[in-house]
């Protein structure tokens, strides 16, 4: 059904799209197809592009912090790389939970490819840029990607739905706990990387407080404002 052909760039892209489209259709065969070794680069490319696409969709944060065009492009690339790292971490967490709760013997690297493929719906994250519909699209893509992860877990671990649900939810929760405990130095490194790549202090972390920030910078304290 899915032929893995990476002999030329054209075939690589064709195979990558076929796998991504299969994952988006939640087709178990697509996840089965990436089980053999040698598909790592394809999955890495999908996750990287999903990361770039997500940064485009959320680019209001970079614009709000007045990141220069060159730095903007670099930030896109950095987020692609950070997305790859995040797949390693989330997969590790899910794999650990599955091992403890359900005593699975699937190797970590096996799960890694399938979990990576579940990021495929996020290739469309650039649509989050759309005004009005963007926020809804963002949520829909997150749910879509989560569903793809459940299919991946069912395929690679042989889980039934509730087991896949427990592993993915607990796996996600463990990552959140780690973020605020043992993982704090890594979060600090991530922020530092984002800051030096953007070339500015990323004071605006989300658009939620943008009005207050603009009023503070340009009206209450104009010297710190737009020049």
């Amino acid at each position: 059904m899915y032929t893995i052909d990476t002999t030329t760039i054209f075939h690589f892209l064709q195979t990558m799209w076929a796998l991504a489209w299969g994952a988006m259709r939640l087709d178990p065969a697509a996840f089965k197809a990436v089980e053999p070794a040698g598909t790592g680069l394809l999955i890495t490319a999908i996750v990287f592009l999903a990361g770039v696409s997500e940064t485009i969709g959320q680019s209001v944060v970079l614009f709000a912090n007045r990141v220069k065009p060159g730095r903007f492009a670099l930030s896109l690339l950095l987020n692609g790389i950070l997305f790859i790292v995040s797949v390693f971490i989330l997969t590790g967490s899910i794999w650990g939970i599955a091992k403890v709760l359900f005593h699975t013997d699937v190797p970590y690297i096996g799960l890694l490819r399938e979990a990576g493929l579940s990021y495929a719906p996020l290739l469309f994250s650039f649509f989050v840029l759309l005004p009005y519909m963007g926020i809804f699209i963002n949520r829909a893509l997150s749910v879509w990607s989560f569903l793809a992860l459940l299919v991946a877990l069912k395929v690679v671990m042989g889980f039934v739905l509730w087991q896949a649900l427990i592993c993915s939810i607990f796996g996600w929760a463990l990552v959140q706990v780690l973020k605020y405990t043992l993982g704090r130095p890594f979060v600090a490194i991530e922020r530092w990387l984002r800051r030096i790549t953007a070339g500015v202090n990323l004071a605006v972390e989300s658009p939620d407080k943008l009005i207050e920030t603009i009023i503070e910078q340009t009206i209450d304290n104009p010297k710190g404002g737009k020049s």
Partner: peptide, 12 residues
């Protein structure tokens, strides 16, 4: 108009 009404872009 949609940009103006969007909570992400509207502030700018």
């Amino acid at each position: 108009v949609a940009v103006s009404a969007d909570r992400r872009y509207g502030p700018i």
